[in-house]
C-alpha cells in the first residue's frame, strides 16, 4: 500500500515544469519530505498528484490509477494544502474547518462537529474557534489550514510548506504531530519544506528535486543529504566556514542538535 509516481510530466505551454518524474514512492505511517530549490517544481508535483494540475504519466495509490477517479472522489482520498492561504472569508475558524470536513464527509453531523473540535484542540486552536479568518495572524491561519487538511481524514496528505509562517515552537509542534498522525492513522504524508534540518529530523524518506523539474535523489535523509549533492542542487558557490573546522557529515541534523532540539532522533 503506497503512493507511486512514474514518468510524470507537466507542461505550461512550451515550458516544461516537470520532466519525466519517476521512481517516487511514499509509504503510509511516515513523513516523506519533498525538498529542492525554488522553482524546482515542488508545488506542481504535489498539485499534479492531487489532480489539481493537469499532467501526463502514472500516479497510483494502492495500485489504483488515480486518474480513474473524479474530482470529488480524488479529493476525498488525497488532500493538497496550498502554500498561500490568503482567504479572509467571513467565516469563523470552526466554520472553516467544518467546511473542509463537510465537503467530503456527508454522514453524521454530530460526529463531524466532534471531529472538528478534536482537531482544533490538538492544534491548540480551540480558543480561536469563534474568531473570523480575517482576524487571525499568519501563523494561526496556517494552522487553521492544517486543521482543514487533517479534519478530512484523507489517505494521502500533501502539505506545501505548511510551516513557513510558524514560529519555532509551532513548527516543531506541527511536525511532531504530523509524524504521530502518519503513524497512528497509517496516513501517507508528503511535505514540501525548505528547512533541511527540519526535513532531516522529521522525515524518513526524501524526494530531492533539482532545476528543470527533475528528481535528483530519493531515499533516506542520510543518503540524500550529502554535502556535494546539496552544493550542486542548491548551487552553493560560497565557501562555508564550519565552526569546528571539519564539515559535519549530515549537516542539517547536526545543525538541529546544535540548536539544542534534542528529542525524537532516537526514534528514527
Amino acid at each position: 500500500m503506497s503512493l507511486k509516481i512514474e514518468s510524470l510530466s507537466v507542461h505550461f505551454g512550451r515550458t516544461r515544469i516537470l520532466n519525466d518524474v519517476s521512481g517516487l514512492e511514499a509509504r503510509p505511517g511516515e513523513l516523506t519530505a519533498l525538498i529542492g530549490p525554488n522553482g524546482a517544481g515542488k508545488s506542481t508535483l504535489l498539485k499534479s498528484i492531487a489532480g489539481i494540475e493537469r499532467s501526463t504519466g502514472h500516479i497510483s495509490l494502492d495500485d489504483t490509477a488515480l486518474d480513474t477517479l473524479d474530482i470529488a472522489q480524488r479529493a476525498g482520498q488525497i488532500y493538497y494544502l496550498p502554500q498561500d492561504i490568503t482567504s479572509r472569508a467571513a467565516l469563523s475558524v470552526f466554520e472553516a474547518v467544518l467546511l473542509a470536513r463537510r465537503t467530503t464527509h456527508k454522514t453524521d453531523r454530530r460526529q463531524d462537529l466532534k471531529r472538528v473540535q478534536h482537531t482544533l484542540q490538538t492544534l491548540e486552536l480551540e480558543q480561536y474557534a469563534e474568531r473570523d479568518l480575517g482576524q487571525l495572524s499568519g501563523g494561526q491561519r496556517q494552522r487553521v489550514a492544517i486543521a482543514q487538511a487533517v479534519v478530512r481524514e484523507p489517505r494521502v496528505l500533501m502539505l506545501d510548506e505548511p510551516t513557513s509562517a510558524l514560529d519555532l515552537h509551532h513548527q516543531l509542534q506541527v511536525l511532531e504531530w504530523l509524524v504521530a498522525l502518519a503513524r497512528e492513522q497509517q496516513m501517507i504524508i508528503v511535505i514540501a519544506i525548505h528547512d533541511l534540518s527540519l526535513a532531516a529530523r522529521f522525515s524518513r524518506h526524501m524526494w530531492l528535486m533539482g532545476a528543470g523539474g527533475k528528481v535528483c535523489a530519493v531515499g533516506a535523509p542520510e543518503q540524500v543529504l550529502t554535502e556535494e549533492r546539496l552544493r550542486e542542487v542548491y548551487a552553493i558557490r560560497a565557501h562555508v566556514e564550519w565552526p569546528e573546522g571539519e564539515p559535519p557529515r549530515v549537516t542539517p541534523l547536526a545543525a538541529t542538535r546544535q540548536l539544542g532540539m534534542q528529542g525524537r532522533e532516537q526514534d528514527f
Binding site: I85, S87, A89, A100, T104, Q148
Partner: peptide, 16 residues
Amino acid sequence: TALRMGDLQARALGVN
C-alpha cells in the same frame, strides 16, 4: 462557501 477559500483550496476540497 469553499470557493471563498480561494480557487486553489476549493479545488483541493474537491470542487469542480
